[in-house]
Design a protein around this nucleic acid. Structure first.
Length: 510
RNA sequence: GCCGCCGUAGUAUAGCCCGGUCAAGUAUGCGGGCCUUUCGAGCCCGUGACCCGGGUUCAAAUCCCGGCGGCGGCACCA
């Protein structure tokens, strides 16, 4: 008994790090999970939850993880050809690796075969009632006349569906469930329907198929055929689990262990796929990473790191409650990750030009590049050199002394004209940073002309994206695309593109 | 029509399943202080909350009942 006490004490101390709870009925080496996105758009933060949790569990139990594209609606959720690739890229970026990959639109014969088996088993029927008629009967808990058709009739009419004898809406295959089920949407749900793919061709199979499985039919079948043992998905699928249960009973299959967790929302960005689709219809380059979107591609472009998304998803875990994270909190997590690694640069907006006046021959500036290191940007300044500062800073401190970061303390002495333009004259008062601190002088950043690079910084402002022009230290040229940097007194930004002529940045957060 | 979830500080949330360790944790905000080379970054300290009513219990944020309030999902989308 006494020997157990030290263990207990130690556990208390180390329990800070969140871990995933054990997966029910999981056997090491036998776990199979899947992520099954619809390629009608890129995935967003909400999708990262099932993707990461499914992948993490598969890995934790040394099992298998499957990526499956569920693209069986060319009509109302027409897949985006580019989305298949984008989703794979997003998953890779998130650190998710899949062992197998499937595309449901290439498995249509599989679905048709199971449909025949189901019809043969008497577990389904071809229904040619109108939608309204069926709905009326169903709401009263009554059977539609086709429910009692013979197996032969059903098979024959299913073949007619495949052969194109019916138009959209004229025939569906329904799974027999329970006409008195309290949830009307469960009653004899639709397994296959007709979509006229000559009107709305599928990006992969074109107009080859006109009978398409619904989500519940296709996903239910594939989960079984692919040997999925554990389904991790959001609560919105609870009623789908009930529906698929009837399918599994007809076919004498055992349903996988299912875990339903809450939805993960992000405030301050657009998460609605239909809205994003509409907005991106005019996109010229990449339709998926508009900075206002909550897609993984957009967050990434905005400088959010995969590790940040991992933390958020781990934090919300597999709990059934919905979670809504604010952009501010996402930024806070991201900042803690990015702050130690981001190099610092000075950049100014709306530049005002100034020349420095001092009595020594030259000045040397040391601009700290990286926290806690001896890495500096070093500048030598001689009389007559020109620097730029932000207009707002100059206006705010015109009357007072201020410190130019890494250089010295100055005050505005006057204005001279040079080549027809006004040039502010700044007079050195002291080099001492101690003095600046003790007198609480404001510190502002500056850029030496001649060692600068013009730049643009994209900033999300409400529902608009602004492009602000800046001058930035030329040494930013050493940064690579996707690096996160910090601009003094402005905030963190991601390097989108940098060349000899221009730096393009995307603003992340303070 | 049906199914389900949630109401914790200004905001977003943890804790609730397995009641006591919760005079309630974290982030952000706000107030104050600190920072060897200088930041709207960081660090430290402080501030501030369990929807209402009843019940069970020695003990309830946690269980039960009722009320009020907010939200989500399904139906030939996935």
């Amino acid at each position: 008994m006494t020997s157990r006490w030290p263990d207990l004490l130690q556990e208390k101390k180390t329990e800070k790090e969140k871990t995933l709870p054990p997966l029910p009925d999981a056997v090491e080496g036998r776990v199979v999970t899947r992520f099954a996105p619809n390629p009608d758009f890129a995935i967003h933060l909400g999708n990262a939850r099932p993707a990461l949790l499914s992948y993490w569990y598969a890995r934790q139990y040394k099992g298998k993880f499957i990526l499956r594209f569920e693209d069986t609606d060319p009509r109302t959720k027409a897949p985006f050809p580019e989305a298949y690739l984008q989703i794979k890229e997003d998953l890779k970026w998130l650190g998710v690796k899949w062992d197998e990959e499937y595309i449901q639109s290439l498995r249509m014969e599989v679905f048709y075969n199971i449909a025949r088996r189901l019809l043969e088993a008497g577990g389904a029927y071809v229904d040619t009632c109108s939608e309204e008629e069926f709905r009326r009967l169903r709401n009263e808990g009554r059977a539609c006349p086709h429910r009692d058709s013979s197996v032969e009739d059903n098979l024959e009419r299913f073949d007619k569906m495949l052969e194109g004898h019916f138009k959209e809406g004229e025939a569906v295959v329904r799974v027999k469930t329970d006409l008195s089920h309290p949830d009307p949407s469960v009653r004899d749900w639709v397994a296959l329907r007709i979509i006229d793919s000559s009107k709305t061709p599928h990006p992969i199979t074109g107009d080859k198929y006109i009978v398409w499985p619904t989500y519940n039919f296709a996903a239910g079948i594939d989960d079984y055929l692919m040997g999925v043992t554990h389904i991790l998905r959001a609560k919105e699928h609870i009623s789908n689990t009930v529906k698929q249960g009837f399918l599994y009973n007809h076919l004498k299959w055992k349903y996988p262990v299912t875990i339903h967790f809450g939805r993960l929302g992000l405030e301050g960005v657009i998460l609605s796929k239909s809205k994003m689709r509409k907005m991106s219809s005019t996109a010229t380059v990449n339709p998926f990473n508009d900075l206002r979107f909550g897609t993984i591609a957009s967050l990434r472009r905005r400088g959010i790191r995969a590790e940040t998304i991992h933390k958020v998803v781990m934090e919300v875990g597999v709990k059934p409650v919905d979670a809504k994270i604010s952009l501010v909190n996402l930024f806070a997590i991201n900042r803690s990750i990015v702050d130690p690694i981001a190099r610092r640069y000075m950049a100014v907006e709306d530049p005002v030009y100034a020349t420095l006046e001092f009595s020594v021959e030259k000045l040397e500036a040391h601009v700290p590049r990286r926290l806690g290191t001896k890495e500096f940007g070093v500048y030598e300044l001689k009389g007559g050199d020109i620097i730029a500062v932000s207009r707002v800073d100059l206006n705010a401190h015109r009357e007072k002394e201020f410190r130019l970061l890494g250089l010295g303390n100055f005050r505005v002495k006057g204005v001279v004209e040079k080549e027809g333009r006004p040039l502010i004259v700044l007079e050195l008062t002291s080099l001492s940073s101690e003095e600046a601190r003790s007198r609480e002088l404001p510190i502002i950043q500056w850029v030496k002309i001649g060692e600068h690079l013009p730049g643009r910084m994209l900033v999300v402002n409400g529902d608009r994206i602004e492009s602000r022009s800046i001058l930035i230290e030329r040494s930013v040229i050493e940064e690579k695309t996707d690096n996160i940097i910090q601009l003094y007194r402005i905030g963190f930004a991601r390097v989108e593109d940098v060349s000899e002529e221009e730096a393009v940045l995307v603003y992340s957060h303070d």
